[in-house]
Design a protein around this nucleic acid. Structure first.
Length: 645
RNA sequence: GCCGAUAUAGCUCAGUUGGCCAGAGCAGCUGAUUUGUAAUCAGCCGGUCGGCGGUUCGAAUCCGUCUAUCGGCUCCA
């Protein structure tokens, strides 16, 4: 007998070799039907895998990530089985579960392709196979047998995969006619899968390396109930409505022109006003934190970037140098602001008493991103960073770092970005050839970041190998409507540029010392930040930020004049108002201004003139009462003050 | 850059197997109406069917190419 401990710490005895499924069934049939996988002493098991020793167990259902993971992983096998049945001769690479379903990387035989027209056929086959309720059977396989199996099958990708595995750890899973190298865990049988949808296909380089062959990645998602699939598809439709590219068009915030060029956004008046308001907001914060504004040109001599090291690293893949009538003279569009700011630092000598010096600039930069990477406003070729560079003494580094974290957190709080994550990016543990600067400096910088994050109590993820080539960094990521993560705020430590530009300050010992540099951009870039903000708010911007706070709707043309006088009074009280004086009925005006996501509407007509009040409506909610112009102005300013306190 | 898909009026979309002057709704303009809390009615304007080249008696429709966009991959100073 073995002892099984449940999450609530109750203990029950079962005979050795009992399976998770049997345990679940002993508790209730309902549970046995719902449970998908089981954690045994911290390792996730198939429900059908025997448990041979005392164990602490947790059952995973559909609502647990682990449960979904097993479900989708099994579905990837099912899809692979269906693909093999429909397209004989395919070779398989890997097929993991992901956040929203699963994929399988497949090498189709020469000349064979799959398009979205094939999806229904594939879905149908998957469901047919699922209905056979084939068991997922786990077997442990010796390495040489595993190699033999795939060599005979002619699947060199799997052979490559097994080559890297240790003998004695290799398991196969088989369901129906399909066998796959896999660690598991899996569902008991395919019958759990009731609904399947192939989402998309894409090219994916083998092992993620651009130089390798491109395999076909087929994305799919499955559900234990048909209804869940329908709900998921509805959710996707809803998410599409929040897409910043769609809302940006609807609200006339920005546009693109193929004639201007790919990835070069054009900000429309309403978008520009929104952006200016954001910039002003940050400028006000920065003033409190001791930042000084600077302004630098959009181009710089090539030599500047040779000095900074950026030319060697990115020169080939950037916008190419601008030539002038002068022989041999070359300028680059600036891909970042730091070298210019270094030159500003160098424009006069500095004492240790002056530091830290914080130069801030909304600096527009140009980077030649690969065409396929461009994406709305989140990934563009010309964008404006809310950039600043802090030059400080090594002993000030941590404190300065913490102050920047405070700014980012304040901004996120003001804009209700609650669901952000933070990532510390450090050097690759093994390969250090791609980084410049001394080990000693790197270690100091990495330690400063880790400590600063600990002190601020940030819940961080540490990624090795993700650091910039010149220093470690801390990034703040926020998700868009479809759950894709975008990096917004960034704070990066740099020991490299001060070295390359030979930046100095005179210490209390009257000797020359090298300052440390911090690059930081709390928004990241205005473009990306506005994009994520649009998706976050679905275009319903906070009152302080939105271009038009109030729409005044005269009941008929007879009251247009009065409406304009109300607007003037509101403007005098710093309330941004417009009059909808079109020859339309009130109902129509309300509808149109609701669609334009204007936070407040006031209706004016005979009654309002008589009583000297406004009839106020809130976007999405309807009438909220009558107020005088003064009361309403105060009402708006109060709300604005609450939002940005 | 790579794999796959898409491109019709300012916006959202129709347009059968190639066949007369390419359609609708919204927006815009004009007029009627003078409107009370999510769409008043009528008329009008608006398109080199993304660009270029080809096949054909004939191309929005078929083929090639370029440009841009979308979903991924790779990349992201």
């Amino acid at each position: 007998m073995i002892k099984i401990t449940f999450p609530d710490n109750t203990v029950k005895e079962f005979s050795k070799g009992v399976t998770g499924y049997e345990i679940a069934k002993s508790i209730s049939h309902g549970l046995a039907k719902e449970v998908l996988s089981v954690s045994v002493n911290g390792e996730t098991y198939d429900l059908t895998r025997p448990i041979n020793e005392d164990a602490k167990i947790t059952f995973y259902k559909w609502n647990d990530n682990e449960g979904k993971h097993a479900f989708w992983h099994s579905s990837a096998h099912l899809m692979a089985e269906a693909v093999e049945a429909l397209y004989p001769g395919v070779k398989l690479w890997v097929g993991p579960a992901v956040d929203n379903g699963f994929y399988y990387d497949i090498d189709f035989p020469e000349g064979q392709t799959i398009t979205d027209k094939d999806f229904p056929k594939l879905e149908k086959m998957m469901i047919e196979l699922a209905q056979q309720k084939n068991e997922y059977v786990r077997t442990e396989v010796a390495k040489k047998d595993a190699l033999k199996f795939y060599s005979e099958k002619g699947d060199e990708y799997k052979v490559d995969l097994i080559d890297g595995l240790e003998d004695g750890t290799i398991t196969f899973y088989k369901q129906g006619n399909f066998t796959d190298l896999c660690r598991g865990p899996h569902l008991p049988n395919t019958g759990y899968i009731k609904a399947a949808k192939i989402m998309s296909i894409a090219g994916a380089y083998w092992k993620g390396d651009e130089k390798n062959k491109q395999l076909t990645r087929v994305y799919g998602i499955t559900f234990p109930k048909k209804k869940l699939l329908d709900e998921y598809l509805v959710m996707l439709e809803e998410a599409k409505k929040r897409d910043h590219r769609k809302i940006g068009k609807e609200l006339e915030l920005f546009t693109f022109s193929s004639r201007v060029g790919q990835g070069l956004p054009l900000w429309l008046p309403k978008g520009a006003m929104l952006r200016e308001r954001l910039e002003q907001f940050l400028k006000n914060v920065q003033k409190k934190y001791g930042y000084e504004p600077v302004i630098t040109p959009h181009i710089g001599q090539k030599e500047l970037y040779v000095t900074s090291g950026h030319y060697a690293k990115y020169g080939k893949d950037s916008f190419q140098p601008i030539h002038t009538p002068a022989e041999g003279e070359e300028f680059l569009l600036k891909p970042m602001n730091c070298p210019h700011h270094c030159e500003i630092y160098k424009s006069k000598p500095h004492s240790y008493k002056d530091l830290p010096i914080r130069y801030a600039e909304f600096g527009t930069v140009y980077r030649y991103e690969q065409s396929g990477e461009l994406h709305g406003l989140t990934r563009v070729r010309g964008f404006t960073q809310d950039d600043a560079h802090i030059f400080c003494r090594p002993d000030q580094l941590k404190e300065e770092f913490i102050k920047v974290i405070d700014i980012v957190l304040y901004i996120f709080k003001t804009l209700d970005f609650e669901n952000f994550s933070t990532q510390i990016s450090l050097r690759d543990k093994e390969d250090r050839s791609k980084y410049i600067g001394s080990d000693e400096n790197w270690e100091k910088a990495e330690a400063a970041i880790v400590e600063a994050c600990e002190e601020k109590g940030l819940n961080t993820v540490t990624e090795y190998g993700e650091a910039a080539f010149y220093g470690p960094k801390l990034d703040f990521m926020v998700k868009d409507a479809l759950g894709r993560s975008w990096q917004l705020g960034t704070i990066q430590v740099d020991y490299n540029l001060p070295e390359r530009f030979e930046l100095e300050y005179t210490g209390s010992d009257d000797k020359k010392h090298r300052p440390v540099m911090i690059h930081r951009a709390p928004f990241g870039s205005m473009e990306r930040f506005v994009a994520v903000l649009i998706e976050h708010t679905a275009g319903k911007f906070p009152l302080w930020l939105t271009s038009d706070q109030v729409a005044i709707l005269p009941v008929s043309e007879r009251f247009n004049e009065f409406a304009h006088s109300v607007k003037e009074k509101l403007l005098q009280n710093d309330v941004r108002a417009l009059v909808d004086d079109r020859n339309e009925k009130v109902g129509k005006k309300i509808r149109d201004n609701e669609m334009k996501r204007i936070p407040y509407m006031v209706i004016v007509g005979e009654k309002e003139i008589e009583t000297g009040t406004l009839s106020v409506r809130k976007q999405g909610e309807g009438e909220i009462g009558k107020m005088t112009i003064e009361e309403f102005s105060q009402f708006i300013s109060q709300r604005v003050a609450e939002e940005i306190k």
